[in-house]
Design a protein around this nucleic acid. Structure first.
Length: 727
DNA sequence: AATATTCCCGTTTTT
DNA sequence: CGGGAATATT
């Protein structure tokens, strides 16, 4: 066994450039790998793991944290391919924290059988919390409160801490809601996503013995996508490496795209300050993209002010032009892409090497239709959607109640699913009964005391109670068996099979759920229902995409992080969409949006196409769009502008970028709700709504024929008419 | 209590 | 446009 590295490990250094080698052989002390897109980061990280395992430690002392489960699996496989014996912990932050909280539940003050609350259930609890505070959900929307609570948790603020910081009355109210939410959560023995991180961070800060124990377990820590870590993740990393200082962070500030989720780009920017003496390695040679793609992406990202300059370069071929396609509407955009892809596939390009990215999920719809029309197979990265489906959540709710009877949200979900004659009033009474006697609803339902207070429904509730207690024996069974048994014994199978008018795919989805359990069981022998439920809670959409031999992939820009394709389309380059703008009041974080666009562009290996539709239907109304300012930042020889009118390639110069076409009517000051207007094709109508934004004015018009359309007034061919004009 | 219908609201990205 | 909630109907 050699311990002096170097010459004995040539195989691990083979084919690496000098900075890559530096990173691989640096074993002790902090290391920051600033890795541009396509710079061979994963290669370096996996080789470094192998190097560590060969020279200074054993696999079980290595912890590698990735951003998605898919990335974890991939890294796991690649490490194994380097002949590293199994034993390293490779997973996401969330999976790690869930695991630690189960192992050290008692020291964290938790019950081991806690359930992980998903987004929908969390919403429900927030809503209950608002109501419990005696507030109206119309004044305090659950969505807004949810967001405030999430932000607070991401900053590791407890309800008390949040309350102390709340300066105004509204935030003080949010503090009350937050406290009430925490109360509900803990009484149902649940943890949300943010809790997983926050609890572990708190535990490590509080329990020095445990911290030291874990530090000795994880002697070498690697964190990928460090630019997207939040305060809790930062703390965990810091505490786990407090004395060893063996933290290797990899990332790219230009690819920080999760600020909205509490990620702090400052974590990576101040790494050297936080970990003095850190070795900083910069990987700037790109092995992925053509020169033209790289140049275009670099041009775009150069417009960001808050960033460290990077010198991205490649020895790859120049490649074809980056195309910018401006087209009439979303349907044509989708058709254009579908046809273009079909041609490439006919030309021999494997579909799995092709992807279409968009800013928001809703844009996938028109693409799907066009793909269907062309007979083009596709996959959408949306595994979450599967586990969020009604019928799937029903089954999971039964399982959750089985492992955690305190889970009231799940219990109330299944109490009348499938319908068994237990209506709202009965449920309300049951809940009152439970509150009155300080018991859990589950115990009231399954208890021995008489349910006479419930009248005729009492018998039905009792029967439901017997059903639940009858499931108890499943707790020790493997997941597949438990899932199958629940599906049939609960009546869900019959319900989703027989009922006409219900989603026909529902029953098939139940089968798919059983298969999913089976495949999880194959990968993880000796697994339990608790493990599988946890897995079901933590899978993400990207985790499910097939990479080799699969069909064309459709996904959001966020989901595209870390992936690469030979042919990439990025659609919807329009003001308000990319960069996305939530509403007129709050300006988008334009730099983060630009980074998002950068991430999308740099996924492309050979050919990149950016598209923009002049009209797009969003939330039910077709609107004239404005070209994304990002497109105007792309200029030069490698860019080809394509119109949809047959004759292509007008070269744009940046002169037009300041003020795009369109102007407001001169008499705009007189426009108001109710104003009569005329449109050349739609005829007479009346203004139903107007939004005067900082940049654009939007109008909603109801026409005489009953149709309703909205426009950006600057571009609408609308003319104000007076009553006497109409007669 | 269950189902059918209407209406109203929000409206990004995800572990 | 689409989901969820309030409302109407059986």
């Amino acid at each position: 066994m050699s311990t002096d590295g170097g010459q004995h490990h040539d195989d691990l250094l083979e084919g690496l450039n000098p900075p890559q080698r530096d990173a691989v052989v640096h074993t002790e002390g902090p290391l920051l790998i600033l890795a541009g897109p396509g710079s061979g980061k994963t290669r370096v990280v996996t080789r470094r793991v192998a190097y560590l395992a060969r020279t200074v430690t054993r696999p079980r002392h290595i912890l590698a944290i990735t951003f998605t489960n898919k990335a974890a699996k991939e890294m796991q496989d690649r490490i194994r391919a380097l002949d590293v014996p199994p034993g390293a912990t490779v997973c996401t932050f969330h999976a790690l924290c869930a695991k630690l909280l189960r192992i050290y539940a008692d020291r964290a003050g938790l019950a081991r059988n806690f359930t992980i609350v998903d987004r929908d259930d969390r919403r429900k609890l927030v809503k209950q919390a608002i109501e419990a505070c005696g507030l109206s959900t119309s004044n305090y929307s659950p969505a807004a409160a949810d967001q405030v609570i999430g932000q607070a948790k991401n900053k590791m603020l407890t309800p008390d801490a949040f309350a102390r910081l709340a300066s105004d009355w509204r935030n003080q109210t949010y503090a009350r809601i937050y406290a009430a939410y925490e109360q509900l959560l803990s009484s149902s023995n649940g943890l949300d996503f943010d809790d997983l991180l926050m609890r572990v961070a708190q535990l490590l800060a509080r329990d020095e013995t445990l911290r030291a124990e874990l530090e000795d377990w994880f002697r070498y820590v690697l964190i990928d996508e460090y630019q997207d870590t939040n305060a809790a993740q930062y703390q965990i990393a810091r505490l786990l490496t407090k004395t060893t200082r063996n933290l290797c962070a990899t990332g790219d500030p230009d690819q920080s795209i999760y600020g909205w989720r509490g990620a702090d780009i400052g974590n990576i920017l101040s790494f050297e300050r936080d970990y003095p003496g850190a070795l900083v390695v910069r990987l700037e040679q790109n092995y992925r993209s053509t020169q033209r793609i790289l140049t275009a992406a670099d041009q775009l990202i150069a417009a960001n002010q808050q960033r460290k300059k990077k010198n991205l370069w490649t020895e790859n071929v120049q490649g074809p032009n980056v195309r910018i396609v401006e087209i009439e509407d979303a349907d044509e955009e989708a058709r254009f892409i579908a046809k273009d892809i079909v041609e490439h596939v006919r030309g021999g390009l494997p579909p799995s090497e092709i992807a279409v990215f968009y800013r928001v999920n809703s844009l996938s719809r028109t693409l799907e239709e066009a793909f269907l029309h062309e007979g083009l197979a596709y996959q959408i990265a949306r595994g979450v959607e599967f586990y969020a489906r009604k019928e799937i959540k029903d089954v999971l709710a039964y399982l959750r109640v089985l492992v955690n009877p305190a889970d009231e949200v799940s219990l109330l979900r299944i109490i009348n699913t499938p319908p068994r004659g237990i209506g709202d009033t009965t449920v309300d009474r049951l809940v009152d009964l439970a509150r009155g006697s300080q018991r859990r609803v589950y115990d009231v339902i399954t208890g021995a005391d008489d349910l006479a207070a419930l009248g005729r429904s009492g018998a039905k509730v009792r029967e439901f109670g017997r059903l639940l207690t009858g499931f108890a024996d499943l707790l020790q069974r493997p997941p597949t068996e438990a899932v199958a048994a629940i599906i049939s014994r609960s009546g869900l199978r019959a319900h989703y099979q027989d009922e006409t008018g219900l989603d026909e795919a529902a029953s098939a989805n139940l089968d798919e759920l059983v298969s999913a359990a089976r495949s999880f069981e194959n990968d993880h022998p000796e697994t339990t229902i608790v493990d599988w439920l946890e897995h079901a809670s933590l899978v993400s959409d990207v985790d499910t995409v097939q990479s080799n031999g699969g069909p064309v992939t459709l996904m959001t820009l966020h989901a595209a992080k870390g992936l690469e394709f030979r042919l990439v389309y990025l659609i919807g380059l329009e003001e308000g969409l990319l960069p996305f703008q939530r509403n007129e009041g709050t300006p988008a974080d334009e730099e983060e949006e630009r980074r998002l666009c950068f991430v999308g562009m740099t996924r492309a290996k050979e050919r990149l196409t950016l598209t923009r539709a002049r009209y797009r239907m969003l939330r039910g109304a077709t609107e004239r769009t404005v070209r994304s300012p990002f497109l105007d930042e792309l200029r030069g020889d490698g860019i080809e502008w394509v119109g949809d009118d047959g004759f292509a390639s007008r070269r744009r110069t940046p002169t037009r970028s300041v003020s795009p076409e369109g102007r407001l009517p001169d008499d705009v000051a007189e426009w108001e709700i109710g104003t009569l207007v005329e449109h050349p094709t739609h005829g007479l109508g009346q203004v139903m709504a107007m939004h005067r934004g900082a940049k654009r004015t939007h109008v909603d018009v109801l026409f005489r024929d009953g149709s309703r359309r909205s426009w950006v007034l600057e571009f609408a061919d609308l003319r104000r008419v007076d009553y006497h004009d109409v007669g």
